[in-house]
Design a protein around this nucleic acid. Structure first.
Lengths: 212, 212
DNA sequence: GAAAAATCATACCGTAGAGTACGGTAATGA
DNA sequence: TCATTACCGTACTCTACGGTATGATTTTTC
């Protein structure tokens, strides 16, 4: 009564299992690292939450540091892909910039983003690469996208901008001005949609007032 | 041949000794916390660097957490007093704002300030008061000072500002736009005077362009 | 169905660090 | 002078955690 049903698995069934197990480990580890920081996260706790044994955990990630690096890598990758920013050159610049600000503020004020930022900053002293990797994969990429748009808008005569990179940096940081610092320091917990909109509009207003 | 020279010490000589010892402990602890973070700082190392014994250290601060709190308190207090900002209402606003920006950027990009900010952010998850205390004693106070100046300038017709608190927040955060994040993440080490000036002027320019 | 690989459960090792205990010694106060 | 208080040095306890070892059990592959 043995049916050969599973059709696909010539490319290895072990590999599949292994990959999904790896993901499961990273899920648990990421949650713990983001929630408690590096030092307060214990391998024992991760193994316990996984249900498996310690030996298995170590067979996937031979040290806590390597596990941490893998978590960081995955987290920034997810950030990167989610910055599918909607800066449409066909829109009038007010609309495009306002839309970007809202999306950006919403993104960076999510609890996971805040936790990631905290984690990176907290560990960037002990692991200097952490800060560099994060910077290159999150803020630098966003800035580049915004700068490209702004340069185009300047060419089309829609905005008066000399240094697009500088302007992009100013715009993104304006989006951080109010709530973000308070989130980072733990004075606020959950952003409401109204707060996000207000924050984004304030940033866009100032920017457009200066460069419009 | 014993001369009763020391004139003042009726208010206790033990207390003096004790106070200065306490300061010495805080000096060492602060350096270590700022340099290595909370977790990587050990009470043993502090005691060793002090030269004294562990028992003495514990007699001043009965736990690592309490020592940490005391360090934080002192560090933010020193920050607070150093924000003797020169926002002179008699100056023309361009001059006043430019001057403030330079001083402010210089202040927050100092290695000690960066280390403190990192420490606070890194631990504000585990010790939620840390973030709150820091916010109230450093960013909030600065913002208040700036807002008061801006409100005055608006009344005198020098600037077009509706919401002074908002504008103050935007101005101070503009000063953080470029270098500060890179310092925090460890991509830069020591700010040059030229970098500080350029950064401050960029922030002031944008602000004055929008509100001038 | 049997060999091989992965996983499990659990006990263990080494280290490190927070906090304690204690006997001896120097400074302080009356 | 004498009691007290603070300090020193050091050894110690206890706990936690990263990492290892091992033997049994399951799963995959052929």
């Amino acid at each position: 009564m043995i049916v050969e049903s599973t059709a696909i698995p010539p490319p290895g069934r072990r590999e599949m299992r292994r990959a999904s197990r790896r993901e499961a480990i990273l899920d648990v580890a990421q949650r713990s690292f983001l929630e408690s920081g590096y030092a307060a996260t214990t391998m024992n706790a991760i193994a316990a939450e996984l249900g498996g044994s310690k030996g298995t955990l170590w067979s996937y990630f031979p040290s806590k540091e390597l596990l941490f690096a893998a978590v960081l890598d995955r987290a920034t990758a997810s950030f990167r892909t989610q910055v599918a920013v909607v800066l449409n050159p066909a829109d009038p610049p007010e609309r495009a910039i306002r839309g970007f600000c809202r999306r950006f503020v919403e993104r960076i004020c999510r609890p996971e983003s805040i936790a990631l930022y905290r984690l990176v900053i907290g560990e960037s002293q002990r692991f200097p690469e952490v800060g560099r990797i994060f910077y290159e994969r999150a803020p630098a990429i966003t800035r580049k996208i915004v700068a490209d748009y702004l340069a185009g808008a300047a060419e089309r005569g829609q905005l008066k901008i000399e240094d697009a990179m500088l302007a992009a940096e100013q715009l993104t940081h304006m989006c951080l001005a109010g709530m973000h610092q308070r989130f980072i320091l733990g004075l606020l917990d959950k952003p409401s949609a109204a707060m996000i909109k207000a924050e984004a509009d304030r940033a866009a207003d100032l920017f457009l007032r200066a460069y419009g």
